[in-house]
Write a protein that binds this DNA or RNA. Structure first.
Lengths: 263, 263
DNA sequence: AATCGCGTTTCATATATTGGAACGGAGGGG
DNA sequence: CCCCTCCGTTCCAATATATGAAACGCGATT
């Protein structure tokens, strides 16, 4: 492995949704890399458009800020990366149909290490802000769409996920191992996951698995909205639409068996 | 500048919408970097999730493909990068309002070197496929949203753009310097750009400039759709909505003058 | 069974990275 | 007004790291 590249990428990884802006000095403290070295990295990234330093007003003058942000190049690469996921283009038409059926946000999630990664989203017309956004991560133990993925992984994967430190995102986030195991079992048995206020207060979502040609579950699809839009008693209506959609997408991926769940 | 980092990022830059998949060998030919060196780079990127090697079926077995694709990490970084653009969150509510007014796709573009970069898009309900997608680029001379940016740049910038090799994307792409200059002038004088089949056959779009607090034009907003949806005779209706939206977004950015165009 | 094409590993060498030291400029306090 | 501090930046000798020719491994092809 190239140490230089590794350090470089690790620096980029520090730019998160929570802290998207860093000064050289802050990075020096965080990474223990000496300032001259960091400076060289940041300059290289900035010259290549991977990082950017916005202009700011300072006494009527427009000067380069000493804050670094992720740059335009990454937006471009991110779009190409998202487009390189085979399932995405296959799934989008079905996701749109599902969106129109219920007028709820529809999400497509991929398994990535111990997280679920949102790779596509069809917005609801209702101007509701949800946690979900393309490019966001959620740990596999929290939220319906993540957890339904976990339900279909090996015991080793499940242990790996549960061994990592966990976080209580909202009032509904499961926090005991026992509770999470029970929810994982529920998913495998019933073919869906249901979550209330797990990642964001007041948000409900229902998720079902998508099967690959080799019968693994690497993707899931979910609908989500505020609590009043997805009442428990209508769950069978929603599941019918979700399973139908998941069956169609699975078939497109080359899954050759009948979809194993139905209302 | 760090040569190692630079080489690494340049490798990533080879993954494009047109060629999103590369084998080690192809990269060796393209970059003139010897295979062992490339191998080390690719391994580092793959281990960090910046590149990925999908699994493929081979005689019933699931094996690592020797094709590399851009990885999940870049989707994540791309989303954070897009979110780091100040205007984006300011503009989205206004873009949604505009989308609902006309039921056309609404795009937000930022100036990036000699290109326009799509940084946000509100889809129309009509299932129409357009060239535009977040993360895509278009040269500043082609398409309404790019060209309206160019209309408000310095003469130097305009020369720089025109000196680069150009491409005819579709039947409406302007190809002579003279023609492009005329269109640029039109934009500055009238405060909008109108394009028919410039980036994609059969697609029409109308774009207007957004003004920064320092009165520069770094962003533009546009509506787009297939030809029949944006007839020439309704252009004033559309412009009214576009200018109103652009004025509101400009004001949010701190532009303190009255928006200089109106119906 | 021999050959080819590519990905991968090895390792002596060359070179790019490293980071302590020192510089410079903006901002703040006395 | 000058001094001091805080950071970003530049310099350059020391050295860790990248480099790539050579050789290997392995599956496919003949």
């Amino acid at each position: 492995m190239s140490k230089t590249l590794e350090k470089g990428i690790n620096i980029l990884t520090l730019f998160t949704e929570e802290k998207p802006s860093w000064r050289l000095d802050e990075l020096a403290i965080e990474t223990d890399i000496p300032k001259p070295t960091l400076h060289r990295f940041l300059k290289t990234f900035t010259d290549l458009g991977v990082l950017k330093r916005p202009y700011v007003q300072s006494g009527g003058q427009l000067v380069l800020s000493d804050h670094y942000l992720l740059g335009h190049k990454l937006i471009e690469l991110g779009a190409i990366a998202a487009n390189s996921i085979e399932i995405r283009s296959l799934a989008i038409p079905y996701m749109k149909m599902l969106q129109q059926k219920f007028d709820l946000a529809v999400q497509l999630i991929v398994l990535d290490e111990t997280d679920g990664l949102y790779i596509e989203k069809i917005e609801s017309l209702k101007p509701v802000l949800l946690y979900t956004r393309v490019g966001r991560r959620a740990p596999l133990y929290a939220g319906a769409c993540s957890r339904i993925l976990l339900s279909f992984q090996s015991e080793e994967k499940i242990s790996e996920v549960l061994q990592k430190p966990r976080k209580k995102y909202a009032s509904g986030t499961a926090d005991s191992d026992q509770e999470i195991h029970k929810l994982i079992e529920f998913g495998k048995k019933n073919g869906y996951a249901y979550s209330v206020s797990e990642l964001e207060e007041g948000t409900v979502s229902i998720a079902v698995p998508i099967f690959n040609s080799d019968r693994r579950v690497e993707y899931s699809i979910s609908i989500a909205g505020i609590e009043s839009l997805l009442p428990q008693e209508k769950i069978n209506t929603f599941l019918e639409g979700l399973w139908e959609t998941a069956a169609l997408i699975s078939a497109e991926l080359g899954y050759s068996m009948p979809y194993p769940y139905g209302v």
